[in-house]
Design a protein around this nucleic acid. Structure first.
Length: 490
RNA sequence: CGGGGCAUGGCGCAGUCCGGUAGCGCACCUGGUUUGGGACCAGGGGGCCGCAGGUUCGAAUCCUGCUGCCCCGACCA
């Protein structure tokens, strides 16, 4: 089999790039740092969107859309926020081009904007500027809005899906009458992300709180879900922020409570991005191609006919059509690949590359025996199933794959999770394959930065479910109340 | 912002050192044989060699300048 994909063991990072390209998920555009998301990759994103959007609506959120451009002055209203984003903003300074007289165009110096516009790196400022007009009374609260949008962050170093200059995401922005309610919203949305990651992406995650160093610019508290990739590195898969009254104060958003007192509102924001596609790839895929969870696979089942004469193909097609009808009736997406210009072997390899969970081959032997060959993408296991059982067997096998890849990822994470008690143990872990190191930390930003400098590992989160446990910081030996998760991260 | 690499048919590359009719694989088109793990034969179409100058009888190749993208590091979701 001609493999176009670099094996993981040889070069993990090259494997990832090859996979994204060869599976047809995305490619580099001619714009530096920006990608073209191709139809197959976008189909996965659409499935993610559909599921998340459904969950947002179920919890009372509505979609809206805010401008791509943000007046420069808005960004500077919240001090921590501008501090965090200033270094990576694209700025629009002019609104017109003109001919350079040599067949090209130049920026027209006479068309300078009075106030420069920032291409949104996130939308808190424009949204809170708007919320000021939407919120007067406690009756206007809570305000629960989400938007699906693109944002731009001018990163120095980019990678397809994981970090691109422009990316797609959703950002929720909510306003509440009380702190407690906003805190509960922050946690609710994180739980939705975690549930989505585990049950749809089949990717186990740890829920926790970010340290001050890793916190969102302008937040009081940042919650996150962290997943472990196959190379042992951590990837932040979603964040949910409790913003306190920071943006309400910056944009003067007040409401009158029941007793007529004017109060600042309490805010949250939360988001996941196309980065999730990168996470999905690195969580499950192998050297032959993508491995997709059935719940996110654009095509869940592919049927490949094997035939010599056209009459044979006709008989197989008749059988395949019956099966397709039965599967589609159960909401299963199925493709019948009767393209005569490709051989079965080519189709097999291609379906593996694309991560199609189940492949059903029907040939002359099967017609005779009333069977089909069913192959599971994750384990490559083959079995012969009687034709009359297929419509019952397929959903079972899809479920089995969904559960199987989750458990495999969980096992991988457990095997690469350590509990070092001193610096030697800790640094040894970070020198090797990596993984999650649950370790004691003295709680200071200085220590965290020092550890990062020494090992490149950062604190991914302070996990919600950690035990109360007295210990000593692995670097300074100072007292600690519980372990935090260190890892090298994407 | 440093370090490296690349730019030649749709894609991947050779050719550049040593200047002399632009080539290979894949893909594509036509016909035939094939089809249970990336088929084969025959024929065919397609290229401002990244851009701009220069040297030369002659430049993909030598010289000068520019541009773009990718990879590796420091910042970040």
């Amino acid at each position: 089999m001609a493999n176009k994909i670099t094996p993981r063991a040889q070069d993990y990072s090259l494997w990832y790039n090859d996979l994204v390209k060869e599976a047809g998920l995305a490619e580099h555009s001619s714009v530096k740092g920006c990608m073209v998301i191709k139809p197959y990759g976008f189909a996965i994103w659409e499935k993610m969107q559909a599921e998340l959007d459904h969950r947002f609506k179920e919890t009372g959120h509505q979609n809206a859309y805010f401008p791509l451009f943000i007046p420069k002055s808005f960004l500077s209203k919240e001090a921590a926020h501008i501090e965090g984003f200033a270094k990576e903003c694209a700025v629009v300074t002019h609104y017109r081009l003109k001919s350079d007289g040599k067949g090209g165009v130049i920026v027209d110096p006479d068309a300078k904007l009075e106030e420069e516009l920032i291409v949104r790196p996130t939308s808190e400022t424009i949204i809170w500027n708007t919320y000021k007009n939407w919120i007067q009374s406690y009756r206007d609260l809570p305000l629960l809005i989400n938007q699906w949008a693109n944002v731009v962050r001018w990163e120095m170093r980019t990678r397809l899906f994981l970090r691109t200059t422009e990316f797609l995401w959703q950002e929720g922005h909510t306003a509440h009458a009380t702190s407690d309610e906003a805190v509960a919203e922050t946690r609710q949305m994180l739980d939705i992300y975690a549930d989505f990651a585990e049950n749809f992406m089949a990717m186990p995650v740890v829920k926790g709180t970010k340290t001050a160093n890793e916190r969102f610019a302008g937040a009081i508290d940042t919650l996150c879900i962290e997943a472990m990739m196959q190379d042992g590195k951590a990837l932040q898969a979603g964040t949910s922020h409790f913003l306190g009254q920071n943006f309400a104060k910056a944009f003067d958003v007040k409401f009158s409570d029941k007793s007529g007192n004017l109060e600042y509102v309490w805010a949250t924001s939360w988001g996941v991005s196309t980065r999730l596609i990168g996470a999905l790839i690195m969580a499950h895929s192998d050297d032959d191609g993508l491995v997709l969870p059935p719940s996110l696979a654009p095509i869940q089942v592919i049927i490949v006919p094997i035939y010599k004469q056209m009459e044979e193909l006709q008989k197989i097609s008749d059988a395949a059509n019956v099966l397709m009808k039965e599967l589609k009736a159960q909401g299963i997406s199925v493709k019948y690949d009767d393209d005569d210009t490709k051989k079965p072997g080519w189709k097999f390899a291609e379906s593996e590359l694309k991560g199609i969970p189940l492949r059903i081959a029907i040939g002359p032997r099967d017609l005779e025996n009333g069977t089909a060959e069913v192959v599971m993408r994750d384990t490559k296991s083959k079995q012969v199933v009687s034709f009359s059982e297929l419509h019952k067997e397929v959903p079972k096998l899809l479920k089995q794959i969904q559960d199987g890849i989750y458990l495999k990822a969980l096992k991988k994470r457990e095997e690469n999770t350590y509990y070092p008690n001193n610096w030697d143990e800790f640094s040894e872990i970070m020198k090797g394959e990596g993984g999650f190191a649950w370790a004691h930390w003295d709680g200071t930003a200085e220590t965290e930065l020092k550890i990062k400098e020494l090992t490149k590992a950062t604190i991914r989160c302070i996990p919600f479910d950690r035990k109360e446990e007295k210990g000593q910081c692995i670097l300074t030996g100072k007292p600690s109340e519980g372990r935090v998760i260190f890892a090298k991260a994407y």
